[in-house]
Write a protein that binds this DNA or RNA. Structure first.
Lengths: 207, 207
DNA sequence: CCCGGGTCTTGACGGATGTCAAGACTTTTC
DNA sequence: GAAAAGTCTTGACATCCGTCAAGACCCGGG
């Protein structure tokens, strides 16, 4: 009768199951960051993990569910990335310095993850199954940026001159540009980013 | 001996050859805009043209050469897109209105081409063979934006407050966001873009 | 001890893809 | 008008992909 609704036919562990899903998703994220969405096959993903290729369909219905799960997993590593910057800053200039430095740092340390993000966001314009997860992350990132901007305005004793989505669009634009340059081997890309952030942040304050 | 250097073993037409390449590239662009880089197969591309699938390797060495050629072809349709806006504007406000309207218009009319562009740009972070062509287009777009910004500053009798790449990054960011929203069916995306452009352009002037 | 359910591997399937060789059709050339 | 060069189609190849079924392995409870 194929007694298998969709999920949870497990009995005792129930968290071992989720643990495996997370482990698998982590391997998948490594592979995805390396090869991109299009060329990361399930076999390659499994090969970069401690399992064999068949196990994927034991933990995920199909490839897309795996990837959506990965994307949501990735989101968690993003949310708090700049909260330290916001919390520690005491002057507007100091916040801009720390924020710009953190942006450059994350490009250096996590370039594969970031290029995967832009890949997935572009793919979501072709595959609507990705759209929901991508949109959710986009909102999360916008909120994150907005926390930085409002704190900056607060420290400068001014009001933000931009809407949240405009502020996100602006900073995401220059960030993406810097990532592109960095991945392409342009060594000036990161210092340009630093300069651009210092250039842009003051413009976000109403005067 | 397989007498076939790399190109040009043709004798008389030499332009019929290029004409076919262009026709094939046009079909390819249609298909690529529909399916994206990853899922646009040579057979599907040929199917959307008047030829059969084998002909691709008569005019292009492999799939990548086809796509790079397509990308360069696409560039030509971009370069002059906003030149009319620059030429016709007589007041700074008028230029912003026309520019914002043109941005929204091109999202409506050519959404497939634009999402393809962002797809290819993301792919170029994984496939270095795409990088050169993508970088060239990126520079072209930056120049295009810069022409708008300098003309705007000129009309407003002020100096630009941003560097060319910052200005491009900023506008590309909000444009991409609007495209994402438009493709995803958010009907407010375009009016948000219009508002954002009106919000951002004045900030680009030194005061 | 063994039995049963959860876990994982192996191997196979049908289909799609890039590539290319062989030849047919078309145009040019003498 | 026949030969040659250019153009295009057809069909096949090797390979890779996602998926899934069959069974082996592992482990706790009877």
């Amino acid at each position: 009768m194929s007694a298998m609704a969709t999920r949870t036919m497990r009995k005792p562990p129930e968290d071992k199951y989720d643990e495996r899903r997370r482990a698998l998703a982590e391997s998948a994220l490594r592979t995805l960051g390396e090869l991109g969405y299009a060329r990361a096959s399930l076999r390659e993903i499994a090969h970069n993990s401690e399992f064999s290729h068949g196990v994927v369909h034991y933990y995920f219905r199909d490839k897309l569910e795996l990837i959506v799960y990965c994307v949501q997993e990735y989101k968690k590593t993003c949310v708090t990335r700049y909260d330290g910057v916001v919390a520690d800053a005491t002057t507007p200039e100091g916040l801009v310095d720390a924020f710009a430095a953190k942006l450059a740092e994350t490009i250096i340390d996590e370039a594969p993850m970031h290029r995967l993000w832009y890949d997935l966001r572009a793919q979501s314009m072709f595959e609507e199954h990705l759209r929901e997860a991508v949109t959710a992350i986009d909102r999360t990132l916008e909120d994150m940026v907005w926390r930085v901007v409002t704190r900056y305005a607060e420290l400068a004793d001014a009001a933000p001159a931009l809407t949240p989505n405009a502020a996100y669009g602006v900073l995401d634009g220059v960030f993406q540009q810097a990532l592109l340059g960095h991945v392409g081997g342009q060594d000036g890309a990161l210092s340009v980013l630093d300069a651009q952030v210092h250039e842009l942040m003051p413009l976000m304050l109403r005067r």
